[in-house]
Design a protein around this nucleic acid. Structure first.
Lengths: 128, 128
DNA sequence: CGGCATCCGGCTAGATACTG
DNA sequence: CAGTATCTAGCCGGATGCCG
């Protein structure tokens, strides 16, 4: 499991509607980070790519919060240049189930939600 | 179903750990509002009680957002004094499943999470 | 490479007061 | 009763720049 994992697809979240989805896990980035770590440990810079321009500060904050909550472990190797790896704990991994349920709901209902929003907009445009 | 429903317990959310739980539905109040509406339609002021001091402005905003997303319907009766009822749509009701899954996760793991946070704090207090 | 320090703009929850 | 109007304060995401 910790042997080797495929590189992350930088575009893996490009069509992800999570911004407007009504189900959220942790903060803005938590669910995506967990997804990135599903296949095995990842380095800081590996995570940055699919997260599309997340600033180091924000990524650090998110990872710290997840470490604090026991969702991930942080392992720093005393090398030069430094190397740090983040890995899911069992607790973090246990969120994958609820996340899958949430994603399924979104897949099944997101279009209704979008339609409803558009219909609502239209109603506002012609208010008698 | 629309006949009559028991009054809401004003304390129904008093021991709810949703603030620090890592799973969220919609905005801060959405999940609670859905829970309040589960048993049938409710009036604006009925919702205010268990939501412990939510201001009318914020409750209105939340309900509007949910109406926009097709989660609830708003029905105003032309009476004096005015009466308005909010009711779950099938779409809103369909969130109950994922919510139950999320709540179960929280029940099962919230204590681990809290322990982890406390342990983390301790580690910060004695940093060598 | 993997951060931390600093500063900033925008959003938003909330308090408060008023209205149909 | 069921909101609206207005104002404010706080937090948070993000940009930029520096360090080990």
């Amino acid at each position: 499991m910790s042997a080797m994992s495929e590189p992350l697809d930088p575009a893996m979240f490009d069509s992800c509607p999570s911004v407007s989805a009504p189900i959220r896990f942790g903060d803005k980035w938590t669910a995506k980070i967990i997804t990135c770590l599903e296949a095995g440990p990842r380095r800081f810079s590996e995570l940055q790519a699919p997260l599309r321009g997340i600033t180091p500060k924000v990524l650090t904050e998110s990872l710290r919060a997840m470490e604090r909550d026991g969702m991930v472990t942080r392992t720093a190797y005393p090398e030069t240049p430094p190397r740090v790896e983040y890995e899911l704990t069992p607790l973090g991994r246990s969120l994958l189930g609820p996340m899958a349920v949430g994603c399924e709901w979104i897949r099944a209902h997101m279009d209704e939600l979008v339609e409803s929003r558009e219909a609502y907009e239209k109603r506002q445009d012609i208010p008698a």
